[in-house]
């Protein structure tokens, strides 16, 4: 009764990463999905339960391409609700780190630094909830080798907190709105309400 091990399975790879240990405990009750705001706020393909299922069913490429892998912001609303006590965002993070290892890129617009204006004050580093920003010595055209902020696109979740704290407006997430358009919109509305001065 001596069988050779059947090589490495995807699910074992996920389980080897801290956070992904309990992926196989999922019995597909769907609590996490109905707790999750991403699906309810307009991303119908987002489904953590299905991602866990994909991992269990060895669907490696599909899980790397799944929106769930990239859009989960680790808010952990699902974690306290899970009856099997699975740290779901931990599992998703494990899949994501495997995907990054396999040269996959995130499908979100991540934060970008304007290296010409960045003064490396470090406010964004403190504000970032994902610890995705670091101050790194970089060679910048016209400015020489200086310290500027640098974003790890694998960790950034595009919340924009960095752009709100930046005093030199040199970091931000490319979004459908800009600071200018928000202010302009506010102004137009106030004008329409009849402000004389």
């Amino acid at each position: 009764m001596n069988h050779e091990p059947i090589g490495s399975l995807f699910v074992d790879e996920v389980k080897a990463i801290p956070g992904g240990e309990f992926v196989e405990m999922c019995y597909s009750c769907g609590t996490c999905v109905s707790k999750c705001m991403i699906q309810q706020k307009g991303e119908p393909e987002f489904n953590p339960r299905r991602l866990l299922r994909m991992v269990m069913m060895e669907m490696k490429d599909e899980s790397f391409d799944s929106k769930t892998t990239w859009l989960c912001s680790a808010c952990d609303l699902c974690y306290p609700a899970c009856p099997q006590k699975i740290h779901i965002s931990g599992v998703i993070h494990a899949v994501k780190s495997l995907a990054v290892k396999n040269d996959k890129k995130t499908i979100q617009n991540t934060a970008v630094v304007d290296q010409q204006t960045c003064v490396a004050c470090g406010l964004c580093v403190e504000a970032c909830p994902y610890e995705a920003i670091k101050i790194i010595e970089t060679k910048v055209p016209y400015r020489g080798i200086i310290n500027v902020a640098s974003v790890d696109s694998g960790l950034c979740m595009a919340c924009g907190t960095c752009s709100a704290v930046c005093r030199s407006t040199s970091i931000g997430v490319p979004e459908e709105f800009t600071d200018e358009s928000v202010v302009e919109g506010l102004w137009t509305w106030l004008q329409s309400q009849g402000v004389e001065d």
Partner: peptide
């Protein structure tokens, strides 16, 4: 996207406006 995205500039502009 987040309340953290609210630049104080927005609030200042609203107040000024």
């Amino acid at each position: 996207p987040c309340t953290g995205r609210i630049n104080p500039l927005y609030i200042l502009n609203a107040a000024q406006g």
